[in-house]
Structure formats: C-alpha cells, structure tokens
Design a binder for these strands. Structure first.
Lengths: 189, 189
DNA sequence: TGTTTTACGATGCGTTCGCATTGCAAAACG
DNA sequence: CGTTTTGCAATGCGAACGCATCGTAAAACA
C-alpha cells in the first residue's frame, strides 16, 4: 500500500477548499471538479475522501462550525462584561479569520432554511450560544430576563453579520452598535 | 398574431413560481425546467418571457422586494410607536404572507454576499428602511441617536427573521422579543 | 381576406454535473 | 521478497443544465 497519509488532515485540506469556494463564489459554485481545482488535487482524490457531495458539504459545515467554536473558545477575559463583548465581536466579520468564515456561515444559514439536516445542528449551536450568553449576562447584571436578552443579542449579531457582509454597515459602525446594544442590556433599563 | 396577453402579468406568474421554488427548495432548485413545471407552463414559455436565467432570478428578486414594500406600505397606525411595531413585526415570518416571502428574502440575502448585483439594491432598500425607522424613532422619542437605534433594530429583526426561519425562535417568542427591544429603544435608557 | 406578427411548443446542442468503474504504482506486511 | 492492500488518477456514463433554433397556430391588422 502507498504512503500512509493522515486521513483526517487530507479531509480537512479538501474541506478548507470547499469553504474558500463558498466564501468567494457561493454554495452553487461547489462542484466536485471546482473543489478539486481549488484544493489543487485531482477529482479522484476528492471522491476518495468523500463518498458523496453531500458528505463533502456536511464536512465543510462541521469544519467552519469547529473553527468558529475554536475562536470563541480561545477568548478569555478577566471580567464577564469584557468577555461578552469579545465573543459578540468575534461573531462579526471584523478580523481576517472571521471575514473568511462569515460568508460561509451565511451561506449555510440560508441553506438551513430549506435543509432540515443543517437546521438541527445550527439550532443546537445557537441554543448553546444563547445559554452561554444568558449566563454571562446574569453574571454581570443579575435579575431581569437573561434568556430573553441573550436571544435578542444573538439575533442582533446574526443580523449585523449579514449587514456587514453585504456592505450596509462598516466594521467600525458594527463595533459601535455592539457596544451600544451591550450597554443597553448590561445597564439597568 | 395570437391572443394579446398581459406581458407583465405573465412575467409575474412565472416569477411567483420562482419564488415558491426558492421558498420550498432553495435557490439551487431554480432551473428553467423546474420553474416551468412549478408554474404549470412549458419551458418555451419561460424562455419567451425571460431571455436568461439571470433575468428570471433578478425579476423574482424585484418581485418579492415589491411585495414586501407593498405590505409595509399598507401599514397604517395612529401613533408612530404602533406603526413602528407593526412594521418590525411585518418583517418577520409571522403572517402567512410573510412566511412565504421570508425564505426567499433569506436566500437572496445570502446570495448577495457573493453577488454584488444583488447587494446594491439590497443596500439601498436597507438604507431607506433605516432612514424611515430613524424618523419614526425620533418622532416617538426625540433626542438620542435615532440612526444608530434604527440600524440596530434593523440588524435585530433581520437576525430574528433567520432565527425564526430555522426554527430556533418561535413566532410568539419573536413577537415578544421585538416588543422588549422596542421598549428599550423607545424609552429613555 | 390576405398578410403579418406574436406567443409559444418542441427539439436539439454542447456543457457540466455527480457518481461508478477501472487500473495501477507504491508502500506496508507476512 | 512476494503479496496484499491502500491511495489515487483516469475515464466513462446518464442525467440535467442553459440556451438556441425552428415550426406553427392564431389573432391582430391592412
């Protein structure tokens, strides 16, 4: 048998090419041939590591989900308020990494509307995120309805992400909007 | 020549079929053959009224844009606060009409991320909406920064629309979130 | 009434798609 | 050192795609 390769690493390389393709040209541009070209490998290789196109797309979805989770998990701050702010900002396409991932997230988000298999993990992630936000909110300002505030904040940053992506809101304006919104939630109102 | 037909009406019929297809199966499902089948007409007819697939999609986009604008324009209320609330709720997939349109909007919104020709009209509409919201906000509660509040509200309802579409937030919860958010904006905080 | 123009239906073309199949070089393994 | 297994490249297939073309029934118009 040929050189033993790192199976998962190869899958991740190809999955990354899928994400790049989605970010630059949308989900429609994802075909086995385009993915192979983007990854700089043969089409046979793509087929060797992914049984179907659907597998490939699902893997790409998990890949960016994991990337986002990793970025969020790397955030650490002394006080909960700063941590909250950092997490919300990390969800927006402000850094180079986030700018690369956000279009992919947006594409999968829209696809989830008509594809239940994407909706399920997306709902789970969204739920976990809301629970975490609620915890942080009540840590900063006990009382009130932290779950409601968390849901509202999540919807707000999701929408803001799209507005920034289509160029309706600049990165600076988005950051200011987050700060203002966060101020409203974290101060007794 | 055959029976003189209402050209625009025929285009709207086909465009409506496109919207139905997008709402139920996503943008990928839009092909000339599928559209013809959904509209119950021949493929030749679709081609007769739309030179290219791109024309067809652009027309469908204008169609739902006009529909949303019409629904928003039909809103009338005595006091500005009620009007503001009604408009925000109308942007969410709560009524049957909005539930049919929201998935289409979401699909085009995501497509706009990688398709500048969709981004431009979307930015314009979003800008007009924000300006209108800002006007209403300052009518209810003068002072503050109505433009900022308007942008934040718009991002919030956009994100909330997606959350409702993927089933993360129920219609009732969404309505309550809008009320709460609106209360924050319209009362001195 | 004859002519012209319009609204299509039908069909075909070249391309691209996802996927299956085949073949084979090479390295791990006995 | 042979055998076997693995990683992949190449090719082919049927289906679906967007689009161009052609034919024609029929109504508007002269």
């Amino acid at each position: 048998m040929p050189k033993q390769v790192d199976h998962d690493e190869r899958r991740r390389e190809i999955g990354a090419a899928v994400c790049r393709l989605i970010a630059q040209r949308g989900l429609d541009a994802v075909s086995l041939r385009h993915v192979a070209a983007e990854a700089g490998v043969s089409m046979g290789r793509v087929q060797h590591y992914f049984a179907t196109k659907d597998d490939l797309l699902m893997f790409a979805f998990e890949l960016i989900s994991d990337r986002v989770a990793a970025r969020l998990g790397a955030i650490s701050a002394d006080d909960p308020a700063a941590c909250l702010r950092a997490v919300l900002l990390e969800l927006l396409p402000l850094s180079a990494a986030a700018r690369a991932e956000a279009p992919v997230l947006a594409a999968f988000l829209a696809q989830a509307v008509v594809e239940p298999r994407l909706g399920e993990p997306l709902r789970r992630g969204s739920g976990e995120m809301a629970a975490w936000l609620a915890g942080m909110i009540s840590a900063v300002r006990p009382g009130g309805d932290p779950e409601r505030d968390a849901s509202a904040l999540l919807a707000f940053v999701d929408g803001l992400m799209l507005q920034v992506l289509i160029g309706q809101v600049s990165a600076e304006a988005a950051e200011e909007l987050v700060d203002h919104q966060l101020g409203r939630v974290l101060t007794r109102g």
